[in-house]
Amino acid sequence: MTGETAELMSHPAAWTRRDLLDLESLSLAELTTILDTACAFKRATDGCRTRLPLLGGKTTANLFFENSTRTRTSFGLAAKRLGADVVDFTASSSSLSKGETFIDTAKNIEAMNVDVMVMRHRTPGAPWLLSQHVRCAVINAGDGTHEHPTQGLLDIMTIREHRGDVRGLTVALVGDIAHSRTARSNIWGLLKLGAHVIVCGPSTLVSRGWEQYGVEVAYSLDSILPRCDVLNLLRIQFERQSTRPFPSVREYALLYAMNAARMARAKKDILIMAPGPINRGVEVTPDVADGPHSVILHQVTNGLAVRMAALWLVCGVKDRTCPPATGVPTGCVVV
């Protein structure tokens, strides 16, 4: 065992959460702990190639109630790199189609002595509901249009790797902000780490409400482009839109696609990121997606490191001490 691995064996004191549900409620110390752990894991595993069996004897369950290839594979591989057993569960193959509630499904899986549940669900808040009904740790792998904490973390890890620090950078999230869980997790993580965050997209998909959190709201990509250090190009989530919020894909591409002409007006060292899956020709053209500024595939590798870190950190906490919620209920009018 190398010195660094031995050091990794001791669980960081800054991490006391049984669950990783969102980035909004994480403290700066918690955020840096998980990012630093991910970096250390990446180094200790030759870039996430080799095993680091810190979770031998543990079992993680992937509960994906919504389709996913990348995230599910990434979590599964991360668990295996750590020496854990992985159970895969898909909604279509499940008792959900027989009318069972997802809480009952989850409790049944937990009864098979699972240590961590990694859940993706179409409904915001579903991981909170789950965490109130199971004793095992819960990791949110994307809850509808709310948050996708490990995606936010891997995006930020990628920026840190290429730029050293996030503080002071101008990071634009471009596209369908309204329906993007990636956008929300990025916003909270980046704000805490001191970045200047811009959300940019059609006015039907970008709320002015973000301004009150210190986020810049822009509708024109061309006007903000010269100031950006990082562009994170979000996919248009057609499946989550009830009425189409812009007239045509062609018009969207005209206004927001990152292409060679726009690259020519961008900073020379701009980073092009995308959480994927990407729609080539819609939010990004192939030459840019595959070009020298693109770090899209680095993001995928870092996803493994971040998920290894998340699994290990939550496994090191025995009990759920803090309430599993984004905040104390404050809605009662004070009298």
């Binding site: 808040g125 509901l129 919620a325 404050t330 809605g331 009662c332 009018v333």
Partner: peptide, 28 residues
């Protein structure tokens, strides 16, 4: 609508799901 606000949904508690919905303080 006179003693709760939409902030209560932050716990994702379905008991706070009503129609009309819990509004913001301005409406209360």
């Amino acid at each position: 609508h006179f003693c709760l606000t939409d902030e209560r949904l932050r716990t994702f508690d379905a008991h706070c799901k009503v129609n009309p919905p819990l509004r913001s303080q301005h409406h209360v």
